[in-house]
Nucleic acid binder design. Structure first.
Lengths: 339, 339
DNA sequence: TGTATAAATGTTATCGATATCAAAAGCAAG
DNA sequence: CTTGCTTTTGATATCGATAACATTTATACA
C-alpha cells in the first residue's frame, strides 16, 4: 500500500532519542563531535523510525548540492559510457554523486539540459565538446561553478578542458593508410552539423589527403548521429558502388566500422585483403571481430578520470589552482587486422 | 574566473522588476495567473540577471523533487541502456527527470545506492531485478513512494513489477536447439550469485534439458558479471576442450555469444555448421555479425516504456490504481544464422 | 581541588522558493 | 457609477536541515 503518511523527520528522531535535532544532524554524519553513547542511541532511534535523511533540506540548508553534472551525446555508446564510468568512479570517494544527461547530439537539447541541470545547483559541470548554443554558453559562463569541456579541444574554451584533437587523431589513421601505399582512400561519417567531433575527424581526412596530394572525394555521410552499425553497412555500399576501386576507408566510429566490415563480408569482399577498414574509439567489440578492427584509442576512460581529478582539485581549491586549464590526452593508433 | 559572488535569487529578480517574489515565482512557471505585461517584465529582469531557478529551494518548499530514480546493474550494457532511454523518454513530458545509478551487479552496492537515492526523495524508484539485501528491501518498502522491480518477476514483489521470466525466456532457446535434433547442448554463464537473471537463464537450461532427458553438465561459468565479450571466448574454449562433441551452446548474453562465435572462427570452426551458438538480449551487434546471432529479444525498451507509464499513472493517482501490479513482457526467439 | 582546555550538546537564525490566504485591480452588467 | 465577479498581485508562514554561536559537561594538569 502506498504510504501517504509523512516520512519521519530529524525532529522525530531527536524526540525519540531525547536529544536536540542538531545533535541528530551531527550524529548522522561522520567526523563530528558526538559521544559514542549518544550516537548509538540516535542511530537506534533512526533505525526504529526508518528515518532517511532528506537531502533536499540538507542541500538547501548547507548550500551544497553534493553532486556534479555531466552531459554526453548518447547514453547508448560504449565510449561515453567509459568516460562516465571513470568519472563517477573518480568521484565516489568525495561523496559526490553524478547526475547524467544526454543530448542526443543536439545543441538545442543540450541547452535545455544544461539549464535543467544548473537549476539543481551542481558543484561542477562537465559537457561533451565545445559546440554550444549562445545561450548555453552564457548559462555555463554565469553558472559560478567549474565547467569542463571534454572530448575535444575547443578554440575558445569556456573554462577548463579535458580532451584531444579529433582532427589530429583521425590523421593518424590516414597517415597509416598512406604509409601502406594506399591512395584511393575514403571516409564514412555522420551528421557533421550535429556532431562537431565527427566533423573534425572528417577534416583530418581532408587535411591529410591534401597534404599528400590525394583526392578526398570518396566520402559518405550517413544520417544517424547516434552512431550505430547500420550506417556503416549503407555507407560502405554507397562508396563501393560509386568508387569500386577504393582501397581503404576510415569510419567515424568503430560501430560504423563494424557495420562496414560485416557488410563487406556479405558482399563477398575480404577485409583487409580486398579493402582496408579503420575505425575510431577502440570499442571492445573491435578486439573480437574477425578481422579485428584497427582503430584510434582516444582514452575515453582517461578523460573521465582526468575530469574527476580536475573537479576534486577545483572544489578543494584553497587558493589559486595551479594545474593547467587545458589537459590533452594523446590518441594512439591501435594496429589490428582490418587495416 | 571562478565567480564566488552569490547567484541572484528570486528576490533579486523581484526587486529589479518591481514586483513581489511570489509574482516572480508564478511568472516563471506556465499556467499560472500573471498578466502578460508583468510576465514579460519579469522575464526581462531574470534574463538581465542571468537568473536560474534554484530547484533545491523549490523542491524543498513544494515538497516535490521532480525526479524518479532508476538503478541498473551496469551502465555499459546496451540492453539496460535501452531500458533507461525508453524510460526517460517516457517521462520527459511529465517534467520528471531521471536519476540513474548502477550497482555493478552487487546487492551491497545496490543497498548503498538505493539509500543514497532515497535521501534525495525521488517520487518513484525503479530497480532491476528482485534480489535485494534485507535492508534494501526494507528501505524500499518504507520509502512511501511507488517501487517498480524490472527485468524479472520476483516471487515476492515489493510493489510493482515490469518484467519477464528469465527462466522461461531461456527455455525458448533450448527448445529451439532440441527441435533441431541437438542433444549435446551447453551453456555459458556468469556469476550466478551476483546476477539472478543470469542464474534463472541457467535454470531454464537445466529445466529444459531435464524435461527432455538430456544431460546439463556442459556448462562454463565465467567470472565477469558485467558482461562483455572476453568471457565468451574463454567460455567456448573451455567447453570445447572438455566436451569437443558439443553441438549447440547458449550464452547468457549476446555479448558473450559474440565473443564465443568469433573465438570459434579463430579456432577454425564454422558457426552454425560445426556448432550452433545462441545469445540473449537482441543487441544490435548480433544483427550485423557474420553469422548473425540467434537470440532472445526481451523487449528492453518496452520495459522502460511500461515502467514510465506505470509511474505516470501512479503519480497522477486520484483514487485507486486500476492497472495490474505485475506487467509481463513477452520474450521472443529471434531466429538468425548462428543457431 | 581548582582552573584551563577540550569535547559534547543546545539555541536560534537561516537558506530560497512556494502554499495559503488576503487584498487590490480589472471588468461586466445593471 | 456601483455591485459582484474574476483576475492579478502581495504578505506571511513554512518546508527540514545546518551554520554559527552559546552553553554545558568532561578531561587534563598543575
Amino acid at each position: 500500500m502506498r504510504n501517504k503518511t509523512k516520512l519521519p523527520t530529524m525532529a522525530d528522531v531527536a524526540n525519540l532519542a531525547g536529544v536536540s535535532s542538531m545533535t541528530v544532524s551531527r550524529a548522522l554524519k561522520p567526523d563530528t563531535s558526538v559521544s559514542k553513547a549518544t550516537r548509538e542511541k540516535i542511530q537506534k532511534a533512526a533505525d526504529e523510525l526508518g528515518y532517511v535523511l532528506d537531502t533536499r533540506a540538507s542541500e538547501f540548508s548547507s548550500g551544497k548540492s553534493g553532486f556534479v553534472a555531466i552531459t554526453i551525446p548518447s547514453i547508448n555508446n560504449g565510449n561515453f559510457a567509459d568516460t562516465v564510468k571513470a568519472f563517477s568512479d573518480g568521484l565516489v570517494e568525495q561523496d559526490l554523486q553524478v547526475l547524467l544527461g544526454y543530448t542526443n547530439y543536439h545543441v538545442d537539447r543540450e541547452e535545455q539540459l544544461v539549464e535543467q541541470l544548473l537549476k539543481k545547483r551542481p558543484e561542477a559541470i562537465v559537457v561533451t565538446g565545445g559546440m554550444h548554443t549562445d545561450r548555453c554558453r552564457l548559462l555555463l559562463e554565469n553558472s559560478g561553478i567549474p565547467v569542463i569541456e571534454t572530448w575535444d579541444v575547443p578554440e575558445k574554451p569556456i573554462d577548463h578542458v579535458v580532451g584531444f584533437s579529433n582532427l589530429q587523431a583521425s590523421e593518424l589513421m590516414f597517415e597509416h593508410f598512406i604509409a601502406q601505399g594506399h591512395k584511393k582512400i575514403g571516409f564514412i561519417g555522420g551528421d557533421n552539423a550535429r556532431d562537431s567531433r565527427g566533423r573534425d575527424r572528417y577534416l583530418g581526412f581532408c587535411n591529410t589527403m591534401e597534404k599528400h596530394g590525394l583526392a578526398s572525394d570518396r566520402v559518405s555521410f550517413q544520417e544517424l548521429a547516434p552512431f550505430s552499425m547500420e550506417p556503416g553497412a549503407s555507407g560502405i555500399q554507397s562508396i563501393m558502388k560509386e568508387w569500386p576501386d577504393t582501397e581503404a576507408v576510415m569510419c567515424v566510429s568503430d560501430l560504423i566500422a563494424f557495420g562496414a566490415i560485416t557488410e563487406c563480408q556479405r558482399m563477398g569482399m575480404n577485409v583487409p585483403d580486398d579493402i582496408k577498414i579503420g575505425g575510431f574509439g577502440a570499442y571492445e567489440l573491435g578486439q573480437f571481430l574477425n578481422p579485428s578492427i584497427t582503430t584510434i584509442d582516444v582514452g575515453a576512460a582517461q578523460i573521465g578520470k582526468f575530469a574527476a581529478e580536475k573537479i576534486i582539485e577545483l572544489l578543494s581549491d584553497d587558493g589559486d589552482t595551479k594545474s593547467a586549464k587545458i589537459v590533452k590526452t594523446e590518441p594512439i593508433l591501435i594496429k589490428r587486422q582490418s587495416a
